[in-house]
Design a protein around this nucleic acid. Structure first.
Lengths: 214, 214
DNA sequence: CCTTTTCTGTTTTAAAATTCACAATTATAG
DNA sequence: CTATAATTGTGAATTTTAAAACAGAAAAGG
């Protein structure tokens, strides 16, 4: 059915999705590639090419039906999934993630939170109580956990990944400084390297400053 | 001096930097493109081409001097800068960022934290006390703030950006759902769209699942 | 009903990014 | 001091990504 869609396209899909949701909220029924391109700050050509990857259902002279397009993207991304996930590390970042993210809108269901700090065992974030990280293995095996959100300090990461992997967890959303890739062949990792991002912002600002003095 | 370096290369630089720091910690003095490629899970060719963007100082038959290479990347990225920045929104994410990020290692200095919640005015994160967001304008102007880290809810974002922009702040690290691009011509934005990332993770997992059943 | 305008899907073309390939240079070992 | 192995810099080839161009289908407006 679906030919391999390129990574660059996939990375744009959530963005399309976001703007399509906005349009839907505003009761806009249809949108043209040109209009969408304007909102997304890209070209109409790219929009058409992207949307065409998963079978054209735009209409010439009409555009794309907003709701249908949105639903189609949900499908492509698999947002209807309820991948069971655990979050590990209930520090500031972990708490922020657990409390604020709308997991169900992104294909996940958060079912467990773990930490190694006794003092917070039992307290709840988003109605899920924090458990002792010693119980991770049994919990993951028993509940068929498919993904883990790693919010621990870097030096704790490697060990955790191994334990999780051995408990059947092969998909990671990684907020740590540690790089998971490579040690395990069949894992899928989405890295969130915040300091890397801050550095690229720094680069742009620095570049900008230099340009202005040239 | 430096020819325009492509965006893709820039995005890899922090990664190089990270691994070079590790090597330096391990007292490794030199590294070959092949070895670096192995660590970074890429090709030796790409490493050489990347590093060459800013003037080859590897030695044939020897490799690259770790410390010198690291310092050079610091230079390219401009990490020696101390761009003065404010953080807005001291909720979970804002607090996490303010408390944990090593701003000075990434070219920034956090000098102010703002929120609209009276109850936390005056309390400190990382030795910086939280101020009333009403004071943002005067503070930014007086202190020549160059960057803002936006950690507020989406509906507060647009207004804030305008106020900040008018106070001379043109560089943003944006954790909100709101898209800044476009409304202002000369702003630089680094977006952190966590839900987008979660969705691409979902896509990969979903794809993986489908492949296995084919 | 006919004409004009609006758009898509798709083909070309162009640009960017990555990989390959190899001459040239240096370290190393004997 | 020489021969061999290691390793870079770089130009060329390949692959990937984005943009442009355009024929043809549908809508809109008489």
């Amino acid at each position: 059915m679906s030919n391999k869609i390129s990574k660059s396209v996939i990375k744009r899909l959530p963005r399309y999705y976001r703007f399509l949701c906005e349009l839907e909220e505003q009761d806009v029924e249809r949108v043209s590639s040109g209009k969408l391109a304007e909102i997304m700050r890209t070209t109409a050509s790219q929009v058409r090419q992207d949307l065409n990857c998963f079978g054209g259902f735009g209409h010439q002279g009409y555009g794309y039906p907003v709701t249908k397009l949105k639903d189609e993207i949900i499908n492509i991304l698999g947002l209807h999934n309820k991948f069971k996930a655990v979050l590990i590390g209930a520090g500031h970042i972990g708490t922020a993630i657990a409390a604020h993210m709308k997991f169900d809108k992104a294909g996940f269901e958060l079912v467990g939170i773990f930490d190694n700090n006794k003092e917070i065992f039992g307290s709840k974030i988003n109605n899920i109580s924090i458990s002792d990280e010693k119980e991770i293995e049994s919990f993951c095996k028993e509940n068929n956990i498919e993904a883990a959100f790693l919010c621990v300090p870097r030096n704790a990461a490697a060990g955790l990944v191994e334990r999780l992997y051995n408990s059947g967890v092969k998909n990671f959303w990684n907020f740590t400084h540690y790089d998971i890739q490579g040690d395990y062949p069949d894992v899928i990792v989405e890295n969130v390297h915040l300091s890397d991002m801050m550095m690229t912002l720094c680069y742009s600002m620095n570049e900008d400053k230099n340009e202005q003095t040239n």
